[in-house]
Design a protein around this nucleic acid. Structure first.
Length: 592
DNA sequence: TACGGTAGCTCG
DNA sequence: GTACGAGCTACCGTAC
């Protein structure tokens, strides 16, 4: 493998024409990370930028050349296509260290995830190189000291070698993406630059720089309120704990002791867990809520959960440089965190914040917050997916679908449906997109909606449902038939994301959930493109919800663009069902 | 003392 | 026959 080690400004200038002649480049970076457990994208320094063409590899030493002389690369890295592995990482560092922000990318990690079709496969550069090119990549220098004044020969060679690996895996990954059967072909930059025709890959690749920006921006949080809440919850929790222990002599957080105490002393009948121990889940305790012991137990658990979540948020708070009352929480997102293409969020998880804590999140001074979400998106997708005419018509007429389902099942007029009947229908509607069985419907209706029905009744509701929604019936029957004949089948989202499944419940749920995640990512991409240089940034994404922080004086403009983005994404995927969304300018996340 | 699995709970 | 996905904490048994 031949490569050039670039350590002087003059050398860098000399390679510019070579890079300019290319349509796309291979890219990797090495960063001098102080703490690998907690990578700091703002203070850790980029040491090397490796750029490859099909012929050359240049290992550019930033420390030797000087950060201020890297500007010459900016137009190249921002305008050329870039091929790399987990480019969100590199893009974040290029942005913070050099204000370089690439936009046109082919990511070999994301490509590998897409072609894996949801199977549990490893996607490190090491694993992908082995799989796609039978290459045994040496990763021993990954965490070597990249801050050394003079890098070791093996470090420089290692850096160049990653580019060689990218070169070898790119053609095979591209070929596999293009060979996947999809409902339509991609157009746009990803197609023009890299020749990628797979529409899922096009959406995912375009999404990468947008997600990098979301992570860098971070969710704004009210520092003073957080502090206040932390103190208040702590003291409330402590007194609850002390009271509980004094009264009952039991540690409320020892599952075994609590379970024994509840069954022996209080004579509660509780179900077993999977491993055979006694379960004291809140949902089983709910029917004993009239007992003060049970009530206290639930109360103390609830308080502790809130306290823990606030503590967790508090650990990740960093200052907002322009507003001393605001902190910023920069979560990490896994772009394809679930087999369906849904994202996941961690450190901290900003996708499972309870409503009572959402008021902590509010925009920085002189900024507004815009919260938008798709309404009943999965049911709308399911209607489109199954082409169920009855459900499509209900949506077209703008009916409340839960109420409508209730009227179909009970035979009563739409207007006469009671609250309880609507709740029951809601359980059925949701159960439907998860591949319901009558037994689980019964349990679900009870634990989630507080509606008690017998198994017999659940069976009747189940039948009635399919009697009216014939499109669903057909879809479920066909899916069951396919699974009878094949151990594993493929399902596909409306964009063309393919997933292998073995279980009926996965087979009916995955394509719906996947289409929802396609839609959200497309909406984010449109927003990134349409907003231009408006001071408006997405600060969190929660499956069907987008949260934007926008400068106060342009909030209406930002809101209009966000709305247009969500509408466009929705209308591309749903041709027969209208989409609906809520969008509002708020002072904090909990207003809606 | 560190690690991994399980249970329980939060969100969509 | 099974309701879908994720992350985080605490507990608890096992390995060192």
């Amino acid at each position: 493998m031949k490569f050039s080690y670039i350590t002087e400004k003059k050398q860098l200038e000399n390679i510019i024409p070579i890079l300019k002649a290319e349509k796309y480049l291979y890219l990797d970076t090495e960063v001098a990370v102080k703490n690998f457990k907690n990578i700091d994208f703002f203070s850790d320094k980029v040491r090397l930028i490796q750029i490859g063409t099909e012929k050359d590899i240049f290992v550019i030493d930033i420390f030797k050349i000087g950060k201020e002389n890297i500007n010459i690369l900016k137009p190249i890295l921002e305008e050329k296509g870039l091929i790399g592995h987990n480019l969100k990482f590199d893009i974040k560092f290029l942005k913070t260290n050099f204000d370089i922000f690439p936009k046109i990318v082919f990511d070999t990690m994301i490509a590998s995830q897409i072609i894996s079709e949801g199977k549990d496969t490893k996607h490190s550069l090491l694993a992908v190189s082995k799989r796609e090119a039978d290459l045994d990549l040496d990763k021993s220098q990954q965490k070597s000291p990249w801050h050394l004044t003079d890098l070791l020969e093996e470090q420089i060679k290692y850096a160049a070698n990653d580019i060689e690996a990218l070169r070898q895996i790119f053609p095979s990954l591209k070929e596999k993406l293009n060979q996947m059967k999809t409902p339509h072909k991609a157009t746009g930059e990803t197609k023009e630059i890299f020749g990628v025709e797979n529409p899922v890959a096009a959406v995912e690749f375009t999404f990468i720089p947008n997600l990098a920006l979301i992570e860098l921006k971070g969710m704004p949080i009210d520092k003073n309120l957080l502090d206040k809440m932390l103190k208040q919850l702590s003291s409330e929790y402590q007194s609850l704990y002390i009271d509980f222990f004094r009264k009952y002599g039991i540690d409320p957080f020892s599952p075994q002791k609590v379970a024994n105490w509840l069954t022996n002393k209080l004579k509660l009948k509780l179900p077993k867990t999977e491993k055979g121990s006694i379960s004291s889940q809140d949902k089983y305790l709910r029917k004993y809520e009239n007992k003060p012991e049970v009530q206290k137990l639930i109360e103390i658990r609830t308080k502790k959960k809130l306290l823990d979540k606030v503590k967790e948020l508090n650990e990740y708070i960093t200052p907002d440089l322009e507003d001393e009352n605001t902190g910023r929480i920069r979560s990490l997102y896994r772009q394809i965190g679930a087999p369906t293409g849904r994202m996941s969020s961690s450190k901290p998880n900003l996708q499972n914040i309870p409503p009572v804590l959402r008021k902590l999140f509010r925009p920085a001074k002189n900024y507004s917050m815009i919260v938008a979400d798709y309404s009943q998106i999965e049911l709308r997708i399911a209607a489109e997916y199954t082409k169920d005419q009855v459900m499509i018509n209900a949506f077209k007429q703008g009916l409340d679908l839960h109420r409508f389902t209730a009227s179909l099942i009970t035979g009563k007029d739409y207007e006469d449906i009671t609250k309880e009947e609507r709740q029951m229908a809601k359980a059925i509607n949701f159960g439907l997109i998860y591949g319901i069985s009558p037994r689980s419907l019964m349990e679900y209706a009870s634990s989630s909606y507080g509606v008690e029905i017998s198994l017999k009744e659940a069976q009747i509701f189940h039948e009635k449902f399919f009697e009216h929604y014939k499109g669903f019936k057909k879809w479920h029957e066909e899916t069951k038939e396919k699974l009878k004949n094949h151990r594993e089948i493929e399902v596909v989202s409306l964009l063309g994301r393919r997933m292998k499944v073995m279980k009926f419940t996965d087979a009916v749920n995955y394509p719906i959930q996947a289409t929802g995640s396609d839609m959200l990512k497309m909406a984010v991409n449109f927003f990134g493109k349409l907003k231009k240089d408006l001071d408006a940034y997405i600060v969190n994404l929660v499956h069907d919800e987008i949260i934007v922080e926008a400068k106060e004086d342009i909030k209406e403009e930002a809101k209009a663009i966000l709305e247009e983005s969500m509408k466009k994404a929705g209308e591309i995927l749903l041709k027969n069902v209208p989409i609906k969304y809520e969008i509002e300018i708020v002072t904090n996340w909990s207003e809606k």
